[in-house]
Design a protein around this nucleic acid. Sequence first.
DNA 1: AGGCTTTCTTGACCGATTCAAGAAACGGTG
DNA 2: CACCGTTTCTTGAATCGGTCAAGAAAGCCT
Lengths: 143, 143
Amino acid sequence: MNDHRAGPADQLRAVGLRVTAPRLATLDWLDAHPHATAEQVADGVRRRLGSVSTQAIYDVLHACTQTGLLRRIEPAGHPARYETRAMDNHHHLVCRVCGRTEDVDCVVGPAPCLEPSASEGFVIDEAEVVFWGYCPQCKAARA
Amino acid sequence: MNDHRAGPADQLRAVGLRVTAPRLATLDWLDAHPHATAEQVADGVRRRLGSVSTQAIYDVLHACTQTGLLRRIEPAGHPARYETRAMDNHHHLVCRVCGRTEDVDCVVGPAPCLEPSASEGFVIDEAEVVFWGYCPQCKAARA
DNA sequence: AGGCTTTCTTGACCGATTCAAGAAACGGTG
DNA sequence: CACCGTTTCTTGAATCGGTCAAGAAAGCCT
């Protein structure tokens, strides 16, 4: 009834998507490897299923993103990354060099910087916060 | 001595870049048309100078971004945009449909959401905030 | 099991941007 | 003020991440 702690198959059914091997493998892989790129997901899924087309991976990621099962993050200058933590709007910490991405929970209480001063007639529905910096590895590599 | 209110030529000299027609035209155009894409900059520059290679535009934008004369914004799913307001870290309001971008001054006092809760060993040097929504035109078009 | 619809495979294609080589232009110097 | 070395611009090809399109295969409702 609820999709809290529901397996990937139930999650898919809950949003009206068919249950297929590429989709299950993608959701499983992303649960274990958050913030993976499409290419990394493809690698992981193929390791489990054998041959799967690149297009299928993109289709799966797209379908799951649109239905809210996945969240897509697109850090400037890096390929898009995906994560299963899609419902809460937490933020991200991104390495400028390698693109490594980590979760950051909301900083200033529940709703962070939402509500800008002047909105120019825009209808705003999301405030995205990205912290930019250098991960430990890349920081060490440039010294 | 200071580059406050200095013309584009002085700004270029101040950061050690040669003064060339494509650079002056680019900075002028962006002063008048903030948040323009590379293509829009190319159009504007060509309107003033005649033929200028696309690569030259990218080189100019790159050089000026690296030296701090320009700031590059890269909204997910849209081509990069550039602006001359590079020094203060204000934020942006982006239309999901057309990519139109507007400035938003800092919301919660001077330093907004900087300093995340857990930083995973990262060295953080910037907090980027993007407000996503629909501009008046695109909002009207989908009704 | 049948049949409609969704999803996957294959392969071409795309936009935005970058790389690489040589020609042209800037600007400090004699 | 002409020279020369370095920076910048031109030309043309290439790259990356991702999308489009058509048909084959598979899911799932009855």
